[in-house]
Computed example of a mutant assay.
Amino acid sequence: MTRLVAPDHLWLDGQLQGGLAAEFADGALSRIRPLAAGETPDLAPHVLMPAATDIQVNGAGGVMLNSRPTPEGIAHIVATLRRLGTGWVMPTLITTTAEVMAEVAEAAVAAYGLPGFLGIHLEGPHLNPARKGTHDARLIRPFEPETLAAVKRMRERGIPVMVTLAPEKVPAEAIRALVALGAAVSIGHTASTAEEAKAGLEAGAGLFTHLFNAMPPMLSREPGTPAAAINSEAYVGIIADGHHVAWEMIALACRARPRPDRMVLVSDAMSTIGGPDHFELYGERIEVRDGRLVNANGSLAGAHIDMLTSLRNLVVHAGLSLAEAVAMATDNPWHALGLPPARLAAGAALEEVVALDADLRPIPLA
């Protein structure tokens, strides 16, 4: 039986379009066509769009990639997030040992091809301890061949890989070597000056990890990493949970970019999304308090938010346009990895399509 969905806005070919309808049959999108005059749809959402893409998510459903670096761990994280409106997931491994990185590389090779599994993000271990955030300083270390080996293992199988590093701590030739393998290098957890950040970009880095977080503040005479990111044409990730970055700063950064299509929404979510309200990381209890994910000292330790809530926040709280917010959650992450974005097209599973109401909250398609 065919179900007709006629949204006010349908995200297609990089823009919001009206007057279109989507037909669903047998649990999948069958076609998109113009809405005929007088037709009565079964569902009329405000927005119909591809499910979100998250290139920085540490865990979900009670599982952290760090604690379960296996194909089953990857599958659990991906499946949990696909139920929450994130259709494509790049599980993120935060600073750990070379042995665990190698395990994740093998797990990724085994799991690749799983619907929704986009690739692996290695966030660390080659960071600046002065901007470590929740990462374990004991495991932060200089660049080493084992990292290159793990990236090479995944890239040989065609798996997208993103590596976050501090450019002032990693030689330019190491950045070039990662880029030569096809990895997307991102600048983050850094105390770099604007000049050091620019040197990282010149070496081949093409992204920045969670703007404003785990980097020096932007000052009038010390622009630092944030200004280098905002003024660049690189892709820039940002967390929109209302705790990591003030709404005014999100709006400022987005509106100041020379290329507005280079902003990328990320959740930086931990395993509490779709799971218990606490977990252990590096032997420390991390828990949700008043919507914030914090450690025993009350410091932020990742985020407790999903991508669709983040998208809504961009519009409702940061004042971005609906088109800007949708692009940041859908097309831009793929472009940041040098990949063609997911599209609404025949054959897309229900987990890969999202409908939002007028308040930008998800509504079921089934």
Rank of each mutant, 00 (worst) to 15 (best):
A6F: 01
L10N: 05
L10G: 11
W11I: 08
W11Q: 08
L12W: 01
G18P: 13
E23Y: 12
G27Y: 08
A28Y: 00
L29P: 06
R33I: 07
R33G: 04
P34Q: 00
E39R: 00
D42T: 09
D42F: 00
L43G: 09
H46F: 15
V47D: 06
L48F: 03
A52D: 06
D54E: 09
G59Y: 02
A60S: 13
G61K: 02
G61F: 03
G62K: 02
P71C: 14
E72F: 06
G73L: 07
H76A: 15
I77S: 10
V78M: 13
L81G: 09
R83F: 07
T86F: 03
V89W: 08
P91D: 09
L93V: 05
I94Y: 03
T96S: 15
M101Q: 13
M101R: 02
A105Q: 07
A107D: 04
A107L: 08
V109E: 14
L114D: 10
E123Y: 12
E123C: 12
L127H: 01
N128M: 10
N128R: 02
H135M: 13
D136T: 09
D136Y: 05
R138T: 14
R138W: 06
P142M: 06
L148I: 11
A150M: 07
R153A: 15
R155Q: 07
R155I: 09
E156M: 14
R157P: 10
G158A: 10
G158N: 06
I159V: 04
I159W: 02
V161Y: 01
M162I: 14
M162R: 01
V163P: 09
T164L: 14
L165F: 00
A166V: 13
A172Q: 01
A172Y: 06
R176M: 13
R176E: 15
V179I: 10
L181V: 06
L181C: 12
G182E: 07
G188L: 10
S192K: 03
A194L: 14
A194R: 05
F208H: 03
F208T: 11
L211V: 11
S220H: 14
R221V: 14
E222G: 12
G224C: 10
A229I: 05
I230L: 09
I230K: 03
S232I: 11
G237F: 03
G242P: 01
V245M: 02
V245Q: 02
V245C: 09
E248C: 15
M249G: 14
M249C: 14
I250K: 01
L252A: 15
L252F: 08
P260M: 00
D261E: 14
M263K: 00
D268V: 11
I273H: 09
H278P: 08
L281K: 03
G283W: 01
E284R: 05
R285I: 12
V288H: 07
D290E: 15
L293S: 09
N295Y: 08
N295I: 05
N295H: 09
A296G: 07
N297Y: 08
S299D: 15
A301M: 05
G302F: 03
H304D: 06
D306L: 14
L308M: 12
T309K: 03
T309F: 11
S310T: 04
R312I: 11
V315E: 04
G319T: 07
A325R: 01
M328Y: 04
A329D: 10
T330Y: 03
T330E: 10
D331F: 13
N332F: 06
A336V: 12
A336T: 05
R343W: 04
A345C: 11
A349K: 01
L350E: 12
V354E: 07
